[in-house]
């Protein structure tokens, strides 16, 4: 589903060259819940940005859903991102002037769905995170945990191939963090692949697989649980969408 081989990313300024990722390789399969950890400056964020196609890389190959990302132009990458990836951020990144409905609507607008389908999807997504009653509220009227749930609904509404979560509980107190984590696990069990970047070892332990990045390379590659049968997984996703 996602396969990175020998990715290299170098940041250049006039004076210094920083190797953010060097010979980075990783494969993620459908249905997995992968936690990516590492000290700050290790290249976690660069990994996340490259995975989300927000940044390009210098060499190596990145295959996403059988497409070679380095061969795509901005329009194609944006389309792919829009259809295949759901983003969740540490600071939620809800758009402050849009109400919950309109926030969830953002990726669907770029997808080009009809008004009717968008409405259906938004309502389903908000229902899934338990916030359908507050559709007309502005983000500022919600607690942090609720805001993150909206962000998750926004990421899910387009039925992406996987969720890309960047410290999803970093800005939350422990109770809310636990709730959000539970929600993510639930979503994963219902079949959506999740890649989560975190520095919280405890949180990472709850994922099926942990990847540790140090100095732009995977330092430790371990599998905690066998991967579910991919075929079975996709059927489940289809069922959820119908519901």
């Amino acid at each position: 589903m996602l396969k990175m081989t020998n990715i290299k990313k170098i940041f250049r300024t006039d004076l210094v060259e920083t190797h953010a990722l060097r010979n980075f390789s990783l494969e993620v399969n459908e249905g997995e819940f992968v936690a990516v950890t590492g000290p700050s400056g290790s290249g976690k964020t660069t990994f996340l940005n490259i995975t989300g196609m927000l940044e390009t890389f210098n060499s190596g190959t990145y295959m996403l859903d059988d497409k070679d990302v380095s061969q795509l132009n901005d329009n194609q990458r944006s389309k792919l991102r829009n259809e295949k990836i759901g983003f969740i951020f540490q600071s939620f990144n809800l758009i402050p002037d849009l109400n919950l409905f309109d926030n969830v609507d953002v990726p669907l607008r770029y997808r080009g769905f009809s008004a009717k389908e968008r409405k259906q999807r938004i309502e389903n997504a908000l229902e899934r995170v338990g916030l359908s009653a507050r559709m007309k509220h502005l983000p500022s009227q919600l607690s942090g945990g609720q805001q993150q749930r909206v962000a998750i609904a926004r990421a899910l509404a387009g039925e992406p191939l996987f969720l890309l979560a960047d410290e999803p509980t970093g800005n939350l107190d422990s109770l809310m963090a636990r709730q959000v984590m539970q929600l993510l696990e639930e979503i994963n069990q219902q079949g959506t692949t999740i890649i989560m970047v975190t520095h919280d070892a405890e949180l990472a332990r709850r994922a099926q697989r942990n990847i540790h990045i140090v100095d732009g390379q995977v330092s430790d590659y371990q599998q905690l649980q066998p991967v579910l049968d991919a075929q079975e997984e996709s059927e489940k996703v289809a069922e959820i969408a119908k519901a």
């Binding site: 989300g52 927000l54 901005d74 329009n75 990458r77 944006s78 389309k79 991102r81 829009n82 259809e83 990836i85 983003f87 951020f89 990144n93 758009i95 953002v106 990726p107 770029y110 997808r111 926004r154 387009g158």
Partner: peptide
């Protein structure tokens, strides 16, 4: 710019 960043992450292309 921050909002544009979010929109880009959610799949808006440069031309959009």
């Amino acid at each position: 710019a921050p909002e544009v960043g979010v929109r880009r992450a959610l799949g808006a292309s440069r031309s959009q």
